[in-house]
Design a protein around this nucleic acid. Structure first.
Lengths: 367, 367
DNA sequence: CTGAAAGCGCTAACAA
DNA sequence: TTGTTAGCGCTTTCAG
């Protein structure tokens, strides 16, 4: 009777814990729902004494606001989307972890999707994110098709890409300096005496794969070596791709003395194929990877690879997205985010076979 | 004027694409919003002709319903939570992938969180899921602390656990038959002539880790071998844990001839430590893993391991959650979900050193 | 079979 | 500084 008239739709047992909403808090704290809302949102004009009382009730009743309602009215979901190529490539979980940590730290939830390089899936992904009204999307696929991209851009969701992306308001691009790490890799190889260096590239059409290859070719020329097109093969960024490419190399008459891979998975595939062939790394072939996934420390032998910080990548992505999402009108001047790469030398690289054999480094038996 | 009276809050330029909501669709299709809603939700009583018209308008305008609003009123978010221990252990991404695929297939979005075995994180995770009003949570951590669990259970969210969990309505447990695969592993080892078999267990307190160890001990006894407590070490389910444990084993006077690991990461750590020590697998030590992650195919040597299907796990989890979430009142009789495990023999296992040397299998040089 | 209208829980004007 | 109130976009009785 004294009820405000809201439908007592369900049972209403005595003492039964009633619907936990902002109204309940308001009633218990003897204030209006507006005040509760303001308290929760830390609007500074709330009387501290009252705020304290409200917080106490909130604690007491273990209340938390309904995200859906909040999102509905405010237009912000506090969800950030993250699209990756393949969650099963260890590079990405490490990235996702960082992204989650940083996003959560700032009050966001994340929606992760793996496209497996399938445009259909990618499209579906984007659609799902749009439906969930994400406040921004990080497209960490190292490449994306133009049409899909438009699908996103047109809805004017803040976006962040790696390497390349269209220009526009709310669109950010994280520039990765592949050159630095890859050049170090090539120079490292050259310094050891390698001239016959193959490159196992990533998928065609992937922008980052192309960038890595370009960085390789250029670095080679810097070192006075002309890259041989016959030694540029498809590694597909997968274990299987690496194995297949290495088999091709093995089958050819002219073998390189070193191979650089577009990512660590490919390199691990190479290592395995060498093992299968009864050949030794680095004695018979030097191998360099790219990414420096955790596993690279324990491959046999441990992998020399180019490190790209997933944490930096994650942080830059979240930062960029937040900057857009939380921008107060002003189209903040676009910040440049740049990610460094660096060579990590382990034990999969050595002198080319037959040369300077006398100098060949003895590997210590124990760590 | 003829307007329904809704605030024309913002600009209203002629021809400017107006707010895309259910009302717009209703207007274009000349029906009420209720009819549009029914059409979208495929309520069978809608006149097919009208439905068709509505769908056309929807297509035309590329409309999709606002998930937040829908969730707010219906009380269902169509989001499933997935809590895993460590996303950086390759077992989990493979699981997540399956979970995502199956969930999306049924119209759900997923919220993944990685706890890193940290109870604080786990608690925070659960809180976040509750706040987002998930329709169910799959706790795939292979172990969980009781208090946290209550936090979830009390909110009566449908839950699914692995191995063990509290009893209650809406709480499901996926039973994994560790015994089968592990017994096969022990028998395989025993058949090769091993009697000195170590076990590298997972984290203390992790229920599944205990189950795996129990299965091991029991299988050993079945084979007439008494497991030696000195050979049961902590592998922690990590690369580093595996390496450390193996080093301990190496330092001890009495070496086992084989070691079973509680997961593949541990086994890979073992492989690496053996390599570091200049010892060979399986010649000097046989190694068996658990999980059969993709990478296990390309370790050096390829890992003999116990396979547990992440896909089955994922499917069972989603199925169980859906059954609860979509249950129409009736507390559906609890279904039993059971997951099989099986040994996959590769090349990390062989005859124990010194015995039956003459029989030692020649490994083919090529695949 | 269809439409009108009452909210879902919350935020944000606008008043007081 | 606080309260009142009008929606956010949708589902769902309840009439027609």
């Amino acid at each position: 009777m004294a009820d405000t008239g809201q439908g007592s739709k369900k049972k209403r047992k005595t003492g039964a814990p009633e619907r936990m909403d902002i109204r309940t808090i308001a009633r218990f704290a003897n204030v209006s729902i507006a005040t509760v809302s303001r308290t929760i949102n830390r609007v500074p004009t709330v009387n501290p004494k009252i705020a304290k009382r409200v917080w106490e009730v909130i604690e007491e009743l273990d209340y938390f606001p309904n995200t859906q309602a909040r999102a509905l009215v405010s237009g912000r979901s506090w969800i950030l989307g993250l699209i990756v190529s393949e969650i099963t490539n260890p590079f990405f979980p490490e990235l996702i972890q960082g992204f989650e940590d940083i996003a959560v730290e700032h009050g966001y939830e994340i929606l992760v999707s793996s496209t497996n390089h399938d445009p259909k899936r990618m499209s579906h992904c984007i659609r799902r994110m749009l439906e969930r009204k994400v406040d921004g999307v990080a497209v960490m696929t190292f490449g994306i098709e133009a049409p899909l991209l438009e699908q996103l851009a047109q809805r004017k969701v803040p976006l962040v890409f790696i390497d390349v992306g269209p220009d526009g308001p709310g669109i950010n691009v994280l520039k990765v300096d592949y050159r630095h790490g890859i050049r170090q890799g090539v120079q490292h190889l050259a310094a050891l005496g390698h001239r016959k260096i193959a490159f196992l590239r990533g998928p065609m059409g992937l922008h980052s794969a192309q960038s890595r290859l370009d960085a390789f070719s250029e670095s080679m020329r810097e070192c006075g070596i002309t890259p041989d097109p016959a030694w540029i093969l498809q590694g597909e960024h997968t274990l299987e791709g690496g194995m297949a490419a290495m088999q091709q190399l093995l089958a050819a008459k002219n073998m390189p003395t070193a191979v650089m891979c577009s990512n660590d998975m490919t390199a691990i595939g190479v290592l395995h194929t060498m093992y299968r062939a009864g050949l030794r790394v680095p004695d018979d072939l030097s191998v360099i990877g790219f990414d420096n996934i955790h596993m690279a420390e324990v491959t046999i032998p441990p992998l020399t690879t180019v490190q790209m910080s997933r944490f930096d990548l994650a942080r830059a992505a979240v930062t960029a997205l937040r900057a857009c999402a939380e921008a107060t009108e002003k189209p903040t001047q676009k910040r440049e985010y740049s990610i460094q790469t660096d060579l990590v030398v382990r034990e999969s690289t050595g002198f080319p076979k037959g040369t300077m054999k006398e100098l060949r480094k003895k590997r210590p038996a124990k760590k």
